[in-house]
Design a protein around this nucleic acid. Structure first.
Length: 281
DNA sequence: CATGCGTCCTGCTTGC
DNA sequence: TGCAAGCAGGACGCAT
């Protein structure tokens, strides 16, 4: 579900309600959510009592930064890294309220609220790491640049050595971080490039246009608060607005917004990919 | 080494 | 209406 714009929207919405609060208690109703090395008990012990100092995002990861506890000897900084995968959601609710059916992890806070991570499909993960552990984590270390940090030169270099179709390259988080199925399709349409075009077949001009398109689409999506297909909500329960601006995602059979020809869906890299066979080459 | 496909889960939608 | 197959925003493990 949540790609870069959704996680960015969530991080911004969560920050004011979390930064400066202290975690008074931890509950893990579904131990499958824990992806780190700790047992459930060790995980709970390692977080309780810490102050939340910051909320940030890298690629599709939401990062909760936790301070050392003064009362714990040699305590170190910690980072709780959430991956929402397809259906992960956050909200903040009074601790006294009923726990949602699909709640996987709860952090109770000093202000009487709790941060609740819910996830219907149970793909989402939470992993507690030291700051050094985070950067040493293979997945994290291999992430490509954020879209706005990607230079045309680096993008071209990354694509030039790929023998895959262009969409598979965009979905590869080691090439560029944060793009998923929605924003891959939307960016490729904006750049007028077919999702199944071999990455090596793109001209330098097409690669440049594609990077510019990615940056523009991601920016517009963040401005709209992300895209709600089904599950995604901000922590306040509000839907995103970018789904109303989709040109092609999920619109197979509908007319191309540019030429009116019916949009077509094919499978690329195992993912449904919608595009205009007339506009995209 | 790089690439592609099945898999992990659950619930909603579609078609018979 | 009922039921089963198909499909979904992601990324990992394994086979090729």
């Amino acid at each position: 579900m949540p790609e870069l714009p959704e996680v960015e929207t969530i991080a911004r919405a969560l920050a004011p309600g979390l930064i400066g609060r202290v975690v008074t208690g931890v509950a893990v109703p579904d131990v499958k959510v824990l992806a780190g090395p700790q047992t459930r008990a060790a995980f709970e012990r390692a977080i309780a009592g810490r102050e939340i100092t910051d909320i940030s995002r890298r690629a599709k990861l939401l990062l909760v930064h936790l301070a050392p506890r003064p009362e714990v000897q040699d305590d170190e900084d910690a980072v709780l890294a959430f991956h929402l995968k397809m259906t992960g959601r956050f909200h903040i609710a009074p601790t006294a309220e009923a726990i949602p059916v699909h709640a996987r992890l709860l952090l109770r806070l000093t202000d009487g609220n709790a941060l609740i991570f819910s996830d219907v499909r149970r793909f989402g993960t939470a992993r507690l790491l030291s700051p050094q552990g985070l950067t040493a984590w293979d997945f994290y270390a291999a992430l490509g640049p954020e879209p706005w940090d990607m230079t045309p030169h680096a993008f071209e270099a990354a694509l030039a050595k790929r023998t895959t179709r262009i969409k598979a390259a965009l979905l590869d988080q080691t090439v560029i971080a944060g793009i998923g199925n929605i924003y891959a399709d939307e960016s490729l349409f904006a750049a007028r490039i077919r999702p199944d075009a071999p990455a090596t077949s793109l001209s330098p001009g097409q690669r440049h246009t594609l990077l510019t398109s990615i940056q523009a689409v991601i920016e517009r999506a963040i401005a709209a608060g992300g895209s709600t297909i089904r599950d995604y909500r901000t922590p306040d329960g509000v839907e995103g607005g970018f789904q109303h601006q989709f040109a092609v995602y999920g619109k197979a059979g509908e007319p191309c917004p540019a030429c009116g020809q019916p949009l077509v869906a094919i499978k690329v890299a195992g993912r449904t990919s919608t595009f205009c066979p007339r506009c995209q080459k």
